[in-house]
Amino acid sequence: MEPDDRPDEPESADPGQAEDLLAALGGAPADDTAPVSAPIEDRVVEPEPPACRLVGIAVAADGHDILQEVSIDLPAHACTVIMGPSGSGKSTLLKTAAGLIVPDTGYVEILGTDPSHAGDRELERLRARNGFVFQDDALWQNLSLLQNLTLPLQYHRHDLASDSVTERINRLVGELGATRRLEMRPANVSAGERKIISFVRAIVGDPEILFLDEPTTSVDGEHADLMIRKLKELKEHNITLVAVTHDARIASQLADYVIVLKEGRVLRFGSLHEISRSNEPEIERILTDVLSETATYDGDILELLDPDTNTYLT
């Protein structure tokens, strides 16, 4: 499956199938204008299981509902961007999808496995196939930057010789422009560098799914560009990306699907095309609010999201 074709594929998805699925999940009624529609690739030819399936998810904290009735299939080998105003539960959704938060109701399947029912070994193997970039860097403070990068490999990639580990780390660090000395502790380098290192840590083990929580915040423009370029490359290598971001560049250049969250509920889940052409005022407003934080572009905000018209980065 060619990556270039992919953005168009959701358009060719059979809406009836989506309705069936939603019906099966107890979702919204089958209607073209349904607020939630699950984009599903053409299964007639090659049924592709979702990278991540969330079924009837609800998460609460301190008696407040953070997520409610979330049922989504995150498509494999594509980039899904989660958008929503602050406090809409984006990070929680991402962590739930990554299996970091155990939902109060419902269940999650990551690559076909429910992490809350997996054995230790199985879970470990599953985790090794995932990468996660935290909003704050979440680097291990008691280890040097280099150790932060080598530790996951030491655990999961016994096949790699120490030479190739070093080579791999140096290559990735070089590609992302973080050339500072890696013997330093995280506390001694800037927040941007920490973020880049945490990004490298997430991808160093060749994950199949990469979860990104605001990957470009506190990273300067130049390094953010390098990061986005790397993400594109990863996407070309069929890696599933799930990102929470305010960054219009990520949204416009990487997103295949968009989830719009509001107050813990999925307002809309659809292909970028669908969302960006949406004329629902609420979605329009949310996207404007979200993207205006990073975009200086004063034109039509939805145009900004359209990869066909966007020349922002190129």
């Binding site: 962590k95 985790r127 995932n130 996660f132 935290f134 403070q141």
Partner: peptide, 21 residues
């Protein structure tokens, strides 16, 4: 204190998600 701080700074989560128990 150390473990508490690790939880706050998501270091524990980082271990979990990296597949390091």
């Amino acid at each position: 204190t150390e473990l508490g701080n690790m939880v706050i700074s998501h270091e524990i989560e980082a271990y979990v998600v990296t597949g390091i128990n």
